[in-house]
C-alpha cells in the first residue's frame, strides 16, 4: 500500500517527531491511519500556530495524507 511497507504506528511517529524537532516531546495516539499528536518543544517559542504545526508536518513530508492518512496536531511551547 505504501512505499514504506509497514503501517505507521504511534510509536514510530513519536520517535520521528522527537528526533526531527530539537528538544521535542510527543504523545501520539492513533490507529495506523488517523493519528493525534500532542507535541511540546522549545523550538515552538515565538512561532505562530501555523508555523508550529508546519514544523511537525515537515517531519513527515509527503507521507501526510498518504501513508499517514491524517495527523491531528496540538502544539505547546516548552522551556528548553
Amino acid at each position: 500500500m505504501s512505499a514504506n511497507g509497514a503501517a505507521a504506528t504511534p510509536q514510530e511517529l513519536k520517535e520521528r517527531i522527537e528526533a526531527g524537532i530539537p528538544g521535542a516531546t510527543a504523545e501520539v495516539t492513533g490507529d495506523g491511519h488517523h493519528f493525534n499528536a500532542v507535541v511540546s518543544a522549545p523550538a515552538f517559542a515565538g512561532l505562530s500556530r501555523i508555523a508550529q504545526h508546519r514544523l511537525v508536518y515537515d517531519v513527515f513530508g509527503l507521507e501526510v495524507g498518504d501513508r499517514i492518512h491524517a495527523l491531528s496536531i496540538q502544539t505547546k511551547e516548552s522551556t528548553a
Binding site: 501555523i50 504545526h53 508546519r54 508536518y57 509527503l62 501526510v64 495524507g65 495527523l71 491531528s72 496540538q74
Partner: peptide, 25 residues
C-alpha cells in the same frame, strides 16, 4: 498554502489553518 492537509480555511486572503487550528481558535 504550504500545508499538507484538508480542510484549509482562508480569511481575507490569508491562510488561517486546518481543522485543529480552527478548533483551537
Amino acid at each position: 498554502s504550504n500545508w499538507p492537509t484538508i480542510p484549509q480555511l482562508f480569511v481575507d486572503g490569508e491562510f488561517v489553518g486546518g481543522c485543529d487550528i480552527v478548533t483551537e481558535m
